[in-house]
Design a protein around this nucleic acid. Sequence first.
DNA 1: CCAAAAGTGTTCAGCCTACACCCATGC
DNA 2: GCATGGGTGTAGGCTGAACACTTTTGG
Lengths: 222, 222
Amino acid sequence: MDILNKKYARQGIHGIVSLFTVEDSSIKVLLVKEHAGPYAGKWILTGGAIYNDEDIESGIRRELKEKISNNDFYMEQFGIYSNPTRTNIVRMVAITYVALVNNDKSLLIENTDDIKWFKLSELPDLGYDHNTILKDSIEYLKKIILKSNIVKVLLPEYFTMPQLTKIYSTLLNKTIDRRNFRKKFLSLNLIDEVNYSGVKKVGKPAKYYKFKDNIIEDKNIF
Amino acid sequence: MDILNKKYARQGIHGIVSLFTVEDSSIKVLLVKEHAGPYAGKWILTGGAIYNDEDIESGIRRELKEKISNNDFYMEQFGIYSNPTRTNIVRMVAITYVALVNNDKSLLIENTDDIKWFKLSELPDLGYDHNTILKDSIEYLKKIILKSNIVKVLLPEYFTMPQLTKIYSTLLNKTIDRRNFRKKFLSLNLIDEVNYSGVKKVGKPAKYYKFKDNIIEDKNIF
DNA sequence: CCAAAAGTGTTCAGCCTACACCCATGC
DNA sequence: GCATGGGTGTAGGCTGAACACTTTTGG
């Protein structure tokens, strides 16, 4: 490739990530406010331009490190947006990722007005083509949680069946029969029962479980 | 993005495609011989650098137009190879596609020694990281043919159940029960019976079918 | 009539769904 | 003991796999 040829000059790669979490039974996505350019003032997805000497996943993790304190998240590439008019400075190809992170109150490094978790039911209009990317991300997320144990990052180490059921029910946005879910999930052999007693509440106490180590499989959960 | 910043300068995008076809009950992939650079003389997958003003799919179709006469192929993006050391001139991110095309003898525009269809059982060692990309392509191809009617491009307009079964059996590299396959495929509602009589052979004559128009769905075929 | 190839029907097992029922706790 | 919530069991329907049987042709 002739690097001086105008046809190829001035291309760049954007790594863009839809980082989701679940809090109070709703899904939230991390957005930042754009400072400059044609979409200044608009909310956009996180990520940014990738350096020459890093792969895309590293670039995204670098960007997120500046924004959230928890770096233990699940991440998966799902799309590409290569329309040459999607940005108007230089030609940028967007490589898009879906990510999941456990929420806790201390997650955001700076709790300013320029970075916030948004409920999916209260989304603003996003800059660039990020409305489309986010919509596609949500669709993709629903698909992949049915095929692996990636919700692991959304739960504490020890958790109960009702907790697990609730996460799935929230992410899929539908009611799930707790009795059938229990049987199905146990049969997948992804979790082990642990001897642990949580905080006591009304009703029969729930058993606690933990995910087995390092299992990401392609089984269909539903 | 500051386009003069060295961190971002000199990046480019490769569109790379594993173009498959089926001929004589075997899968073949189109390879070209590399002329220059560190891998000169090696066989590699088709594709190339994407121009500033085109999206990736257009770039790949432009490249393929120079090589094959039939432009009616199915194409789907499946991967990204962004390791910064995968090429050694400038930093190139590879966006990879799987494609399927109907084979006929006049397919190749130039029938030189520098472009050839290779059976998967007789593959040479490929240049760059294309061995990996091709391996991943095959895996991906097997997955997607179970979820849509993309094999349409591999068949004539009117075809029989035995023909269809054979294509699937070849692509998946396993034996398929013709009776169960027939029932399953018909229930998907992707094809219509047509009133047509093919060449007569030994045995009961097969019914002919054609694909319905414009259906690409996410049903699971197996 | 027989072989060959295509098409039809039947049976069984496994899985999902929808529920009824039982069990352990706090008050 | 009773309300609350978690855990167990069962019956019906759908789907896929295995395979016996029937149909239509050529010779």
